[in-house]
């Protein structure tokens, strides 16, 4: 593996030759082309570009590569032109990613803050254990979406797969389409809004009525994507809190007529 020196960035960035917009804000630097670079080199280049104060960068030819833009602490907009692999934006703080394609497993895993947009579909474990920020999937998300969610918001305009929101702890999921089997199994807290059909609920999950504040929140969140909440028959899924503490079955009660 070759070490990617920061000095080599001159071949990737050319801010001096880029015209500055009239408002003086930094503009996009030259795109970063993944072709011929190792994952290590791509991530180091992204860190180096962020350190120059660039507002945004476009990444070309990500070709489904794993572990792009992981561990970043920058709000620089990173635009991926194409699909990315596992863990895109994982372990990041202040992320600002726009994935113009599909993404592999665990997009935005353990995200602390910021926003990740997936314009295509997301594979399994979208937003796994994410603690803050927002992850928006404009297509569908696969199995276990929002698994162990710890405070982030996951928006999916399409459907989500089976086992989604498994052991969710905090945060919010908004799904316009259908939810697969065993939704919200063993959740602790948090809320899940599903606009389509729910194949089945998992242990200790229950449906409760939406409040006016819920509808306003849905309008606000979905308005960003020109979606009207009222066009969907949203259901709200929360924890039934029956399994918070170990307790024996009450056989007499269960069999009472």
């Amino acid at each position: 593996m070759t070490d990617f020196a920061v000095a080599d960035l001159t071949t990737l960035t050319s801010t001096s030759s880029t015209p500055t917009p009239s408002d003086g804000s930094p503009v996009d630097c030259q795109p970063l082309d993944c072709n011929g670079l190792t994952t290590r080199e791509i991530n180091q280049a992204l860190k180096a570009i962020a350190a120059t104060g660039q507002a945004s960068v476009t990444v070309l030819n990500p070709t489904g590569r794993h572990n792009l833009a992981v561990g970043l602490e920058t709000s620089m907009l990173i635009r991926f032109e194409g699909s990315v692999g596992y863990y895109c934006g994982g372990l990041s703080d202040h992320a600002n990613l726009d994935i113009q394609g599909n993404c592999g497993w665990s997009v935005g895993e353990n995200l602390m803050s910021g926003q990740i947009i997936v314009r295509g579909d997301a594979s399994a474990n979208a937003a796994a254990t994410a603690r803050g920020g927002k992850i928006c999937v404009l297509g569908n998300a696969g199995a276990r979406a929002g698994i162990s969610l710890k405070g982030a918001t996951l928006i999916v305009l399409g459907n989500i797969g089976a086992g989604s929101a498994f052991m969710m702890q905090q945060g919010r999921m908004i799904v316009c389409g259908d939810a697969g089997a065993n939704l919200a199994d063993s959740i602790y807290e948090g809320e899940i809004f599903v606009g389509g059909a729910i194949a089945s609920l998992g242990a200790d999950a229950q449906v409760e009525p939406l409040t006016e504040a819920d509808w306003q929140m849905l309008d606000r969140e979905l308005g960003d994507w020109n979606v009207k909440a009222q066009d969907y028959a949203f259901k709200k899924v929360v924890c039934a809190k029956q399994l918070y503490n170990f307790k024996p079955r009450d056989f007499a009660q269960e069999n009472a007529i």
Binding site: T39, N43, N67, Y87, A128, T129, R144, M167
Partner: peptide, 21 residues
């Protein structure tokens, strides 16, 4: 683990942790 399942995924998880560190 919430974000990986088998040893082939673990390989990618390990790369993620290495990239982040």
């Amino acid at each position: 683990h919430p974000d990986w399942i088998g040893p082939d995924d673990l390989r990618i998880k390990i790369e993620e942790l290495r990239e982040a560190t």
